[in-house]
Design a binder for these strands. Structure first.
Lengths: 241, 241
DNA sequence: CCTCCCCTCATTGGATCCAATCTTAGGGTC
DNA sequence: GACCCTAAGATTGGATCCAATGAGGGGAGG
């Protein structure tokens, strides 16, 4: 309808939440690895990329800065944060505690239907990692989505929006192309992940609060450990100027 | 109506982290209640107030927006968030879990000196609330600082920077003039607060992980409950256009 | 050949400009 | 008097402008 000149990704011209929109899109590009870790974020480049001026881009970058995804060096511009392994471990210890709380709260609130939804999500995740070509990019994407769904579902069932947000905030600090590959790449990890989810599910179904929290905590800690190790070995995904 | 006094508060013209500085100062004004809950934040007013143009102010507001302290309504400007009581309860349940984790971790790392520091902070807090004129503004300020010190000390002893930050982020969502008054205003609350701190301290000293976590969790939940109740009754501290 | 310095260009950062939207006051109508 | 419509003022939001800082490159001196 309206003539969109240079914007490849649709930057909703609602005239309203444009800045939030930009932030979201830049965040996505980082999370998917399209913009690699350590890369410089040039205001002018992003601006022309989205077909806007630098002003809203700068505001979007400020948002990403406070959410911790990028770092802004005065007079030198923004770079995508490169999480140190110990930072990952610290963050995931926090996330583990939060998700454990979510699981514990979920026990009292979960319905049979929701248990089924979780089972489905977990099964889908497993299937995606078993299907042929599980190492292709779209398959990894599907796998990640199912895995995310499992966790976000439990968070939302917990009935505490703030808790969901806190968990999400931590997640969005670490680009996903990295974290997703962990599980898919390795058959053992993929299997373990599935079974850990099953154990959590069982605890939820049985109404065992302590067990649900414990299993979730261990599960997240383990995932964090894998992610941290990945960051230790990484080099291919880091942008080197 | 607006008396434009230029930069009353020193806006470090380091030319560098000016935006972060502005955000910090605006945050302070909100936290102290100088800018009340629900108040409109006019870009032009803030700009002339700090002696800068609107551009850095806008970026600072974006930071405060993502940290949740203010809300930005498209084309209508920024407003200091008015936390709903249930939001306070949710946030404090999260905070309770985080501080419980911090206390648990602190048990293994705390030194005798640090235990003494905590004891001192707690005693100071008590003294400030006992001194004559405890209801004066500066006394409340001192009381709050001692109380904060107690909590931030434990968080820092936990040795997990991310955890400290997560706790701090939650704290900075709810203006303090409000939360501080809770304890000081009521002799019973003041006493309970002191004794709860003592119990936490004892658990830390005895090396009782479970007890430290439990006591801290209960303590924070209780504080959250008081804060939530305050928000339910509030009306004096809310700005009404 | 290496090092240091200076010049130039790229980029950021604050200020300013102008369009778009919202708010509000005034006047007209029922 | 209540309601709506319109027009002017206020405010936000994106674009543009220019100063300031930083990075890179070439030349002079060692």
């Amino acid at each position: 309808m309206t003539i969109e000149s240079e914007d490849l990704a649709a930057p909703r011209k609602t005239g309203a939440a444009l800045v939030d929109d930009l932030a979201e899109q830049i965040r996505n590009r980082i999370m998917t690895g399209e913009i690699p870790i350590g890369a410089q974020l040039r205001q002018a480049e992003l601006a022309s990329n989205f077909g806007v001026s630098r002003t809203p881009v700068r505001e979007a970058l400020r948002q990403l800065q406070t959410s911790g995804l990028i770092e802004v060096l005065p007079n030198k511009g923004a770079v995508v944060s490169v999480p140190a392994p110990w930072d990952v471990r610290e963050a995931y210890e926090v996330r583990a505690e939060l998700e454990a709380l979510a699981a514990a709260r979920a026990v009292r609130r979960i319905t049979r239907d929701q248990i089924e939804q979780l089972r489905t999500a977990n099964q889908e995740m497993y299937d995606h990692s078993m299907a042929q070509g599980a190492s292709t990019v779209p398959a990894q994407h599907d796998h990640r989505r199912s895995n995310d769904l499992f966790h976000t579902l439990i968070a939302s069932i917990s009935g505490n929006a703030r808790l969901s947000k806190a968990i999400n905030d931590i997640n969005e600090t670490f680009p996903r192309n990295v974290s997703a590959q962990l599980v898919v790449n390795d058959a053992r990890h993929r299997d373990e992940n599935f079974h850990e989810h099953e154990r959590i599910l069982q605890a939820l179904a049985e109404g065992d609060v302590a067990q649900a929290a414990d299993q979730m905590r261990q599960h997240v800690i383990k995932a964090g450990e894998q992610l941290a190790r990945w960051y230790e070995l990484r080099s291919s995904t880091v942008f080197r100027g």
